[in-house]
Design a binder for these strands. Structure first.
Lengths: 202, 202
DNA sequence: GTCTATAGAACGATAGAC
DNA sequence: GTCTATCGTTCTATAGAC
């Protein structure tokens, strides 16, 4: 058997995939921190350890790179809510958890939240982006709806609204509260969140 | 008495004030429609009937012009909620009104909403802007709180949360719902809004 | 030898500053 | 109205995989 080189050589396809991943990773960080217009393709390429040639070999342009991030990431930030809806533990202990760790956990998603909201603004002004975003919103709503249905089946809880509408209301309120907490971390926000959850989840 | 010129001559100070006002008016429209980066100072100057020189004579730069708009305008857009809280008419007729005119009335505030949200993004990345914004949010919360207190005094309604927290929740939910309706006008949104109001206002 | 991912220079347009 | 910087995009050369 021949010597295996220190670094296994990548096939051309593998190398390209890896390049693409690294560019996306750099772009995610930079777009989140500096925004769409505040991030240049030179910065993205350099951060990832490439040059602009690599960007244009993998994406048709800046907008395309930005949209690719949406596809990878839109579902991120919803994980906490998902845990909460489907969780088996008592409402009381969930409330305690929220009251205790609300702000510290939120800090981690600061850049991501900025990215998401910036995307909303783009979407309001660009029909192509709007369509991509609303499709993602639809998927999220359906997913939460099914989580809620499971919860109802398990606990027998009664909701004050139809499940679909409850899911939408939850999605809306959670996002708005998160944004407000990042902009202006008033200490009563976790309490408001818990109370709203109690009202919405019955 | 000498002839009065067709147009009364303005003093230099008056002329400068007028120029400033016209620039602000043009900037308000353009920033709202095309966003911060989508609006050039050339566009602003030209729309107002001046040249870029006039902009730099009245503002220290683009950012300064943008911030000047915040001071004039942040409180806009909340009028509907205010009317609703303080209104004397029955909850039923308010609900009907919302269900009927929700989307048509919203269309008018499309540009304004985009501007507001864009400002939120700026605020997350710029501490100076963040301070200005949170101060405005504080004022809005206080105002809604006092509206709610009046309503309680008048109707004797009981709220499920303390007034201050109810005001915050209302503010959050209304803004989030408005944004969602502009991005993705699902027909059930007004119903969700009415139900949430019922839950929050008791 | 051929193909292609990437490097890197060059271009052209835009827009803020003064 | 000019100056200058920036940046997205395009183009060509090259090195390495096939």
């Amino acid at each position: 058997m021949k010597d295996i080189p220190k670094k296994t050589r990548l096939s051309r396809a593998e190398a390209k995939t890896q390049t693409r991943e690294e560019l996306l990773k750099a772009a995610r960080t930079l777009f989140a921190r500096y925004g769409f217009h505040g991030t240049s393709l030179d910065m993205v390429a350099e951060t990832a350890g490439y040059t602009k040639g690599a960007v244009y070999a993998n994406f048709s342009g800046k907008e395309d790179l930005y949209l690719a991030l949406l596809d990878d990431n839109i579902e991120k930030g919803h994980k906490d809510l998902e845990d909460l809806i489907t969780s088996d533990v008592s409402f009381e202990s969930i409330s305690n958890e929220i009251n205790k760790n609300f702000f510290t956990e939120l800090e981690d998603s600061r850049d991501w939240a900025a990215f998401t909201v910036e995307f909303f603004v783009h979407a309001m002004r660009d029909d192509n982006i709007r369509k991509k975003l609303t499709e993602r919103i639809r998927v999220a709503q359906e997913y939460y709806t099914s989580c809620l249905e499971k919860r109802i089946a398990a606990t027998g809880a009664e909701l004050p609204m139809p499940v679909g509408q409850t899911a939408t209301a939850l999605l809306l309120f959670t996002n708005a509260l998160e944004l407000m907490a990042l902009l202006n971390p008033q200490p009563e926000l976790p309490h408001i969140y818990v109370r709203m959850l109690k009202m919405l989840l019955g």
